[in-house]
């Protein structure tokens, strides 16, 4: 069984936000509910401020604190390493949003970020929060895929509706592989500078494993112990700053 993971090469990322847009289209996200976001921030002060950006999906952690705090086991980890939410079991307590160090979870019922409220323009039927004119993936509440129902939390699924249909044993899901292109997550599929890679972290021959190894991939906020399955490449050469306390870390 694969253990899906992502590598994002920050040296290649241009901050174009095509990934965020593709994700929004694929997963019917509204402004402010970006499963995949590119965060912009400024470092330094005048006269030498530097504009920076940072692409940030859900980290699909090895030890997801969001899953551990969920009192109903609505948040769970699939055998292939993807952290998902069962909307049929989520009680909307939002403890997972408190416990996620990366801020990548979204509650359905909030004040809209932009007016008019799109949810009012396309009101939902039944329990679903809205009814977009174009719907991407088939509704799959048990895996948190589709239109978000009221009163639950949602998150990036690594486009589970795509990757779960990929052939078993495949090492990487890449645009270069024409036969399997349909199974590539939307953000990876659309990344123009090919800054994103998606594959099996447990397969030493996968491209993602090689990139992490060769270019010293690092994980965000590694000290929290969540152990993300999303790795970032930055620079590559040169000594690396240890991200934890070495031997004191749990394996």
């Amino acid at each position: 069984m694969a253990r899906w993971g992502m590598v994002i090469d920050l040296d290649k990322c241009t901050g174009c936000q095509a990934c965020s847009t593709a994700c929004q289209m694929e997963n019917n996200r509204l402004p402010g509910e970006n499963y995949q976001d590119v965060l912009y921030y400024t470092e330094g002060k005048q006269p030498t401020p530097v504009l920076k950006w940072f692409p940030r999906p859900c980290m699909h952690c090895e030890e997801p604190s969001c899953m551990h705090v969920c009192p109903t086991k609505a948040t769970f980890k699939t055998e292939d390493g993807v952290v998902l939410i069962d909307w049929n079991k989520c009680i909307g307590c939002k403890y997972c949003m408190i416990a996620c160090p990366y801020g990548v979870r979204f509650y359905t019922d909030e004040k809209p970020l932009v007016e008019p409220n799109i949810k009012d323009v396309y009101p939902g039927e039944g329990d679903l929060s809205w009814n977009p004119p174009y719907k991407g993936p088939q509704q799959d509440n048990a895996h948190g895929v589709g239109i978000q129902p009221h009163g639950v939390v949602s998150k990036c699924t690594f486009c589970y509706h795509k990757i779960s249909k990929a052939p078993k044993g495949i090492a990487d899901l890449s645009n270069d592989d024409a036969a399997n292109r349909e199974f590539v997550p939307a953000c990876v599929r659309t990344c123009a500078p090919t800054a994103r890679y998606f594959g099996d972290l447990d397969n030493p021959k996968s491209n993602v494993s090689r990139l992490i190894s060769d270019k010293r991939g690092v994980r965000l906020l590694d000290h929290t112990g969540n152990k993300p399955q999303v790795y970032y490449l930055s620079g590559g050469a040169g000594p690396a700053v240890p991200s934890g306390r070495g031997g004191a870390n749990k394996a």
Partner: peptide, 26 residues
């Protein structure tokens, strides 16, 4: 404050996530 307070009544006891402080609090 909860999204689904009535769902809580069955979902917490039947799931019993022993790692969650919220489970024990409830």
């Amino acid at each position: 404050e909860l999204g689904h307070p009535f769902r809580m009544l069955w979902a917490i006891p039947t799931s019993f996530q022993y790692l969650s402080p919220l489970n024990w609090m409830g």
